[in-house]
Design a protein around this nucleic acid. Structure first.
Lengths: 268, 268
DNA sequence: TTGAAAATACGGTAAAACCCCTAGGTTGTT
DNA sequence: AACAACCTAGGGGTTTTACCGTATTTTCAA
């Protein structure tokens, strides 16, 4: 079970919002995101939270857990991304706790739209998975944190308080991924925050064929290239994604819709 | 948002256990599942519950919610199917609240194995998918209920009490699916077109681990069996499915929900 | 109790995957 | 021209799969 360590990689964050909000709060002044009612001093204010998750039992559970802390108040629950956006406009929360997988409008799109309209809104993604694409894209969208659901309640509460202070929070597995991405990007002189794991066209092609069950030899014949070249592509894909098994590559390809998840033919 | 209506289709249940337990309790007698300590009369006993879900925040949330009712006591939490089995043996709960998508051993397999060993154990599946293709299989395995995570806390508590009385509980969408399956499947004896390839429990277990990126050696250590045995299971699975690559097995496992499509940590 | 199915395990072999390394050729950009 | 990125290709190595046997034990139902 992973433990949450907050703020461990704050200084190397690719997220642009992290530094912004951090600076604002170091001054010791309350930083009203808008015309929000301040329920106390900057340090003691109650943090208003909106929970967005399509599972009622999960929403209610999280609400019960984080409201045990008297400094946190859940002001609303949304069961879709779209309703989350509506409720943010109405309720003006400090933080949105956002699930990724939601109907009508997923957490990523919701985050993008919300940040665009409310740049100072703090959005903490609470996801079931720590897939690279989501982590990077969500952070690029301007989220203030990315936690996985393996997180414990006390860790979540602590994370919310850190975020309210203007810090960014990540689960360790997410932080690891972000770090890798940062390092790769910075070594090549790219702008931090822009480097997602990018596969070249040929690599994507090879990955798709791998996920469809082709052996290297078949791929080579299909693409009319040497097996050695195929192996090279495969190796680079593995290095980039940090996945070193065929099973993992296949899963990645399906999840990222590089390969169709539906099989045709006798196997199914 | 769907509302839970419990017991609406109890009389048309295909599950064998439902009628069994129902009859037992209509007599008004306490029906000790084993040598369990009775903490009161039959009506007032505390219901001991084990929660199996790989997401800590979800487990803790559900625990907080259902323990608000003084008749329900959560005696343990498991984060994998395998640990759920171990904890049942140790803690002897009345009811297991079982998530479907779990690493190492999924909820369906866990349910099958638990019911096989503890036929009177009540297992309530709490799944993320309302359209779960496993509804029928889970009920055939002998589960006492199938709820989706859209269920609200008070409904869940009520459902647990109904199950403890020996009744079966379903979310409306699940009940609908079961009805359809009854009509189509049981009358014709088999699903039209597709004959189901039947893998043994152990083979399914191995398949899931393969799809989660485990190498044969790791699987062997996980199941505490010889690598040669793992290879044999793998071979038989391949022969049965007529799939002879890891990629194909992984895809099959994902499409058939033997493995989660979204993984986190570990193997990836 | 007998038999079938399942799970266990071992030996051997060829193929494939995995993981290093170097390196030429083609693009496109600065 | 220099540079970076990509595609290409090969050498050489270890590890893992895939497939072929056989065989014992367990389990469960006829």
């Amino acid at each position: 079970m992973e433990k949450l360590e907050m703020g461990t990689i704050q200084t190397e964050l690719p997220a642009r919002r992290a530094s912004m909000t951090r600076v604002g709060n170091l001054s010791g002044t309350a930083m009203p995101t808008s015309t929000r009612s301040s329920l106390g001093t900057a340090a003691n204010r109650v943090i208003s939270v909106l929970i967005a998750d399509d599972h009622t039992i999960v929403r209610q559970g999280i609400r019960a857990l984080i409201e045990c802390d008297e400094k946190i108040k859940v002001v609303g629950e949304a069961d879709t991304g779209r309703s989350a956006i509506h409720m943010v406009k109405e309720l003006n929360p400090d933080i949105v706790l956002m699930d990724i997988a939601m109907p009508l409008l997923n957490g990523l799109e919701s985050t993008k739209q919300l940040i665009k309209e409310f740049p100072r809104l703090k959005i903490v993604v609470l996801s079931s998975y720590s897939d690279d694409i989501y982590v990077t894209q969500v952070m690029e969208a301007g989220a203030a944190g990315y936690l996985i659901k393996q997180t414990a309640a006390n860790e979540l509460v602590a994370a919310l308080k850190e975020v309210q202070k203007g810090k960014a929070v990540f689960s360790p597995s997410v932080a690891r991924r972000l770090k890798d991405n940062c390092r790769n990007g910075l070594e090549h002189g790219q702008l931090p925050g822009k480097e997602r794991i990018k596969l070249t066209p040929r690599e994507l092609e090879v990955l798709q064929l791998i996920a469809e069950g082709y052996a290297n030899k078949q791929i080579a014949s299909e693409l009319t290239i040497s097996i050695k070249t195929v192996e090279k592509h495969r190796q680079r894909v593995m290095d980039k994604l940090n996945i070193h098994q065929t099973a993992g590559l296949t899963r990645y390809a399906i999840v990222n819709r590089i390969s169709e998840s539906h099989m045709q033919g006798g196997a199914l």
